[in-house]
């Protein structure tokens, strides 16, 4: 329990879960759809990468570490693309971003 790999993986996993928590809080707190996509795409990706990095450190050098690295690589590429596609779709559907001049958008109801 006390060797360096366990300590390192625990630190990485705790940091990753902390960023996932920040992402969730951002989704609730932020006023507008476009600001919420920041929370989803950026902090979730970072949190997920840290947790999987912690698991890779804990796993050592095996086939599973390669697969974990593949997951990490895929989500590093896929999550921002998904958030970008979503924001672009919202813009096409006419959802107005929350600028000071236009009225509070429908988010506040």
């Amino acid at each position: 329990m006390t060797d360096i790999t366990s300590i390192l993986s625990i630190i990485c996993i705790v940091a990753g879960i902390f960023f996932l928590l920040i992402g969730s809080i951002g989704i609730i707190r932020l006023p507008d759809f476009y600001s919420r996509t920041h929370a989803t795409s950026k902090s979730d990706t970072l949190g997920m990468m840290l947790v999987i990095l912690g698991l890779m450190i804990f796993e050592g050098l095996t086939i599973n570490t390669g697969k974990l690295f593949l997951i990490l690589l895929f989500i590093l590429l896929a999550n921002p693309i998904g958030a970008h596609a979503l924001a672009r779709a919202a813009l096409n559907a006419g959802l107005k971003p929350l600028f000071p001049d236009n009225k509070k958008d429908k988010t506040e109801g």
């Binding site: 990753g16 996932l20 992402g23 969730s24 989704i27 759809f33 919420r36 996509t37 929370a39 989803t40 979730d44 990706t45 949190g47 997920m48 947790v51 999987i52 997951i71 989500i75 999550n79 998904g82 958030a83 979503l86 779709a89 919202a90 559907a93 959802l95 429908k106 988010t107």
Partner: peptide, 18 residues
């Protein structure tokens, strides 16, 4: 908006992966 729901679903998907 429906896009807020999609953002929430996307977030849940990422967390489920972990």
């Amino acid at each position: 908006t429906v896009f807020d729901r999609l953002v929430g679903t996307n977030a849940i998907a990422t967390k489920t992966i972990v």
